[in-house]
Design a binder for these strands. Structure first.
Length: 752
DNA sequence: CGTGTCTCTTTTTTT
DNA sequence: AAGAGACACG
């Protein structure tokens, strides 16, 4: 009868400990979300706590959405009064409501990464700082870190001998002035200002402390200092702060997250109750074992070890591919063959990679294999240039002082307002202490600007004022439509002959649809609300149901998800671990955790693949297998398509599994490689020289039109040949089986 | 002023 | 491989 019946004893304890600070270490797959949601249900149902007194904070929108949904299932109609949101939307909400207390205009716009960088560039050039010497990226990183540490420009203390930091301080101050003048907050400001607000106003602190009597935080290992300070302030009265996390899954250190904060929780709240959820319900024993062997090499982990009652399952498989194309084809074929055998559906598979750029080959191979797939994350809709343009119009309308937005659109589409004109406008605006937009309205006073350009500016100004006057009169969609029409941006895209522009025009139309959807589904469908939604939610596809298609995503985006079958691809040195992280011990540990996070997403099957060669930056390189592969326990791992990395070469039986890759063919090939490898020295120079040589190929034996025989497809005719050597791709038409793309290396074709 | 071409750099992960 | 910025030309 009780909610508690569905929980194990440790979970029950964690659910019932509702009062006071609580720290829950929840290993991968240990039912963390379950505990969080049941805890809330328990508080509401069994203890009668009003949902509006509960705040659930998550790190991503996806997690927040899921939590709301799950809680709604448990507590029904009371759910809407509960706050479940990300840190950033929580802060934005507080600041819209009460930011006036610290001089924040409720209509502030949120500057995203690109806006921030544009403003930094603007600042750099205004301060006459050479952006070659001090790159906007580096400066921004410094400022962002300072804000994460809650240091204002005045508080920020650069190292005396560090010119970058000293420059950053100058820029920080000026940048902040520009943000204020633009009535804008950047991502980091949201957090910092919310803390500021609570510190400054006792009244508001009281208000929020009384409102949020029970606070739950997910993914606490990803928290930064500003976020933890915010929580401390909010929980300062009732002390009912429950945090859940797993230090082994901390993968956002590069963004200011600090794992030590979870480890230091007990120091800060000595009375904290600590629970450890160590039983894994997700993965097979073998998968878990492998994951553990990878993670256990990290220093300074909180002491814990996952265990499971699940059966051992299949041994995780390590596959070495020739190059990324072959890797992708192997993955696609494996998926295809499992689906054909009725063992699985597309939604059972996830392909996880280190960087978004790696998704492309997999898309192609899945397309070839006719597999439905979906890319999660990646280039987000709202970040496309044409969409950002429309958004910039909206931001400017809401907030004409927002200089970054105005600069983006003033000559987009081109209307004859060039750099020169803009520069004059800007310096005059500065001299007269008016905003750039206001300056546009009095452009006729400037005789440095030619009449033609004056006219262009004036027309632009008139258009924007006309649109501005309609903000309150038109519904959101109508306003967006009007903007798209009046600005001429859609028309330009439609009329352009450029191939990509048709797609861009469609995107703009899709944006209008997104506005319509927002208007329909949100109670507060004002322009402000819509823009905030875009800035913070920023994922138009999030509503799409995963589950019917193969999922492609980065290891980072996979956090919190699970799939029956997981492929982690590109397990190579310099990819995972990423080359930018290899020189730093701390970052290296984070790469390892990233690998661990990926592995623990798998329920039934885990495939780890790496390539012998990979093309990076348009250059083909020899790759070494990832060091993480070396940590796998040999007794529970199958290795295929390769020589065991680092150790003495050995041949491992390949099971017949994929029709195109026949035993005999591969054994022959491996034997060849084996003999050459043992004959030669192990020096890497020697190795690369050798593999640069063309490997004796069968491709040369075929010409288009040849009749060939395949062990399982029977007789067919060569349709085309792409490439050379063992990488050659031979397309063969088989009368019964259709057209097949075969790799010369594996196909084991016989010429007839 | 706008466009096109060329070179150059850049690619980690994201609220 | 692709995008951004520099430069030259119309």
């Amino acid at each position: 009868m009780s909610i508690l019946d569905n929980l194990n004893p440790e979970q029950q304890k964690a659910v019932q400990a509702t009062e006071g600070p609580v720290l829950i270490f929840a290993g991968a797959g240990s039912g963390k979300t379950r505990v969080l949601t049941y805890r809330i249900a328990y508080m509401v149902h069994e203890l009668g706590i009003a949902p509006e007194h509960i705040l659930a904070v998550t790190f991503t929108n996806k997690a927040a959405g899921e939590m709301k949904e799950r809680i709604a299932q448990l507590i029904g109609e009371q759910a809407p009064s509960l706050w479940a949101s990300t840190f950033h939307s929580l802060c934005a909400r507080m600041l819209r409501a009460d930011g006036a207390a610290i001089d924040i205009d409720p209509n502030f716009v949120i500057y995203d990464e690109a806006d921030q960088r544009a403003l930094i560039k603007e600042t750099l050039s205004a301060l006459n700082i050479d952006s070659e010497q001090y790159s906007p990226v580096d400066i921004h990183y410094e400022i962002s870190n300072a804000k994460n540490e809650l240091l204002t420009a005045a508080d920020y203390k650069p190292h005396r001998k560090n010119p970058l930091e000293r420059t950053a301080k100058r820029v920080y101050r000026n940048y902040q002035q520009r943000l204020a003048a633009s009535n804008a907050l950047d991502f980091d400001d949201l957090l910092m200002s919310a803390v500021h607000l609570l510190r400054e106003s006792e009244e508001l602190r009281d208000k929020y402390q009384n409102r949020f009597r029970y606070i739950l935080v997910d993914e606490y290992q990803d928290i930064n200092f500003a976020q933890s300070s915010l929580l401390e302030l909010l929980a300062d009265k009732h002390h009912n702060l429950c945090v859940v996390g797993d230090d082994d899954q901390s993968i956002y250190g590069w963004r200011g997250a600090n794992v030590r904060l979870i480890l230091a929780f007990e120091e800060h709240y000595p009375e904290a109750q600590v629970f450890k959820l160590e039983q894994n319900y997700r993965s097979t024993a073998n998968i878990l074992r492998c994951a553990y062997e990878v993670i256990r090499h990290n220093p300074a982990r909180a002491d814990k070890k996952l265990w499971t009652d699940n059966p051992p399952g299949e041994a995780p498989l390590v596959y070495r591919a020739i190059n990324e194309q072959e890797e992708a084809e192997w993955v696609a074929r494996l998926i295809q063959s499992q689906i054909r055998q009725g063992q699985a559906e597309p939604g059972d598979f996830a392909i996880l990679y280190r960087t978004n750029a790696m998704s492309r080959v997999f898309e192609e191979s899945l397309l070839d294999a006719n597999m439905p797939y979906e890319i999660v994350g990646g280039v987000r809709f709202y970040e496309r240039a044409e969409i950002k343009d429309v958004i910039a119009y909206l931001k400017t309308l809401l907030n004409p002082v927002s200089s970054v937005s105005l600069r983006r659109i003033i000559n987009n589409p081109t209307r004859g307002i060039g750099a020169k004109t803009l520069q004059v406008l800007d310096s005059e605006a500065r001299r007269r202490k008016v905003s750039l937009f206001e300056m546009c309205g009095i452009v006729s006073e400037l005789d440095q600007i030619r009449i033609r350009e004056q006219q262009a500016v004036a027309d632009f100004y008139d258009m924007m004022t006309a649109l501005h006057s309609r903000i309150d009169k038109l519904s959101l969609v109508k306003l967006v439509r009007e903007v798209v029409k009046r600005s001429g941006s859609l028309q330009r895209l439609r009329e352009s002959g450029a191939a990509d522009d048709a797609g861009r025009a469609e995107n703009v139309e899709e944006f209008v649809t997104a506005a319509a959807r927002f208007q329909k589904t949100h109670e507060d469908n004002s322009l402000v609300a819509f823009l905030e939604h875009i800035a913070l939610i920023s994922d138009i596809d999030q509503a799409k149901e995963l589950g019917s298609t193969v999922s492609l995503m980065t290891l980072h985006s996979a956090k919190g998800l699970e799939f029956p079958t997981v492929f982690i691809v590109g397990l190579e040195e310099e990819v995972l671990p990423h080359y930018r992280s290899m020189s730093d011990e701390f970052e290296l540990a984070e790469e390892r955790r990233l690998c661990y996070v990926g592995m623990t997403r798998a329920q039934q099957r885990l495939y780890l693949t790496h390539c012998h060669r990979r093309t990076i930056f348009g250059e083909t390189q020899q790759m070494q297998p990832s060091r993480f592969l070396k940590d796998l326990p040999e007794e529970v791992v199958q290795r295929r398509g390769e020589l065991a990395p680092g150790s003495s070469p050995r041949l491992i039986e390949a099971r017949e599994e994929i029709p195109e890759m026949q035993m005999s063919g591969r054994r022959l090939d491996l034997t060849k490689i084996l003999s050459r490898a043992t004959a030669g020295a192990t020096a890497s120079a020697e190795q690369s020289r050798r593999s640069a040589e063309p490997i004796p190929s069968s491709a040369g034996d075929y010409t288009v039109g040849d009749k060939v025989s395949h062990p399982s497809f029977g007789d067919g005719r060569v349709v085309s040949i792409k490439g050379t050597g063992d990488e050659a791709e031979i397309v063969v038409g088989f009368p019964d089986k259709g057209i097949k793309k075969l790799l010369a290396r594996y196909a084991n074709l016989k010429k007839l």
